[in-house]
């Protein structure tokens, strides 16, 4: 039985359907990347999983247990299991890097402050920011902010880390430092769902690639299949257009 199982999941923005009958399974330790043209519902899928958008139909199960997003208890459970890193970092502007990382473990998970802080320092060191611990978000570069955001998500000890186009808002020269951090997590065996436009990176780290278009999953397969030998016309078109430049 897969660790995360998404069954016929659908969601709407108002009356516009944005996700239709999504089926997807993620095993522990897997890195699943979601690619596709903009507006295909990739980010929306992550927003639904982390409870920012209520699904209309379908189900999500973790370790065989269904999560009902309309129940506050299940919603809380979903957010304990899934952490998300956003395209725009979404760091709390009124807090230092360290406080951004420690706030949820201390006030939400009610863990001991000293223990959390030690962990947070270790995490910030891991993402290469031990020298920026007391900096506020507006004093850091985009790449630094995004690495703090990754540390903040990891501090919650999630089972699955969701990365929503985490390099899209970065200046080109800052992309690699964030990708390096994600590689580090991959080496640790972190389960991840990655929405990304960095095709080379996707191909390198993913165990499975999902191609989405118009709110549907069009094709799923190992990176070699998706990039070298796509089975569907839409995926072929998309990949050839991307790889041409």
């Amino acid at each position: 039985m897969p660790y995360l199982e998404i069954d016929n999941l659908s969601a709407d923005y108002g009356k516009v359907p944005v996700l239709q009958d999504i089926n997807l399974a993620v095993e522990r330790g897997e890195i699943v990347s979601i690619i596709g043209p903009s507006g295909s519902g990739k980010s929306t899928l992550l927003r639904v999983l982390t409870g920012l958008l209520k699904p209309r139909a379908g189900s999500v199960a973790v370790a065989g247990e269904k999560l009902r997003y309309d129940s506050p208890k299940d919603l809380r459970r979903a957010r304990e299991k899934f952490a998300i890193v956003f395209q725009q970092f979404n760091l709390f502007q009124n807090m230092t890097a360290l406080r951004n990382v420690t706030i949820a473990p201390t006030i939400v998970q009610k863990r001991k402050a000293a223990e959390v802080e030690a962990e947070a320092r270790a995490l910030l060191e891991k993402v290469g920011l031990s020298h920026r611990i007391d900096a506020y978000p507006d004093e850091m570069s985009g790449g630094q902010q995004q690495r703090v955001a990754i540390a903040r998500a990891l501090a919650l000890k999630p089972d699955i880390l969701h990365l929503d186009e985490v390099t899209s808002a970065l200046d080109p020269e800052l992309v690699s430092e964030v990708l390096d951090t994600i590689r580090l997590l991959a080496d640790d065996g972190m389960t991840m769902m990655i929405v990304s436009h960095e095709m080379g990176f996707v191909r390198e780290v993913s165990s499975k690639v999902v191609f989405m278009a118009d709110g549907r999953v069009v094709e799923v397969g190992p990176p070699e299949q998706i990039f070298d030998n796509p089975q569907t016309q839409r995926c072929t078109d998309f990949v050839s257009r991307i790889l041409r430049h």
């Binding site: 409870g51 952490a83 998300i84 709390f92 706030i103 949820a104 006030i107 939400v108 903040r152």
Partner: peptide
């Protein structure tokens, strides 16, 4: 609004997010 999003996905309640963030 992305500040609310971040707080929400970290399981902060509405009032906690309001006060802290």
């Amino acid at each position: 609004p992305n500040q609310w999003d971040a707080a929400e996905t970290m399981n902060m309640g509405g009032l906690t997010a309001l006060r802290r963030v």
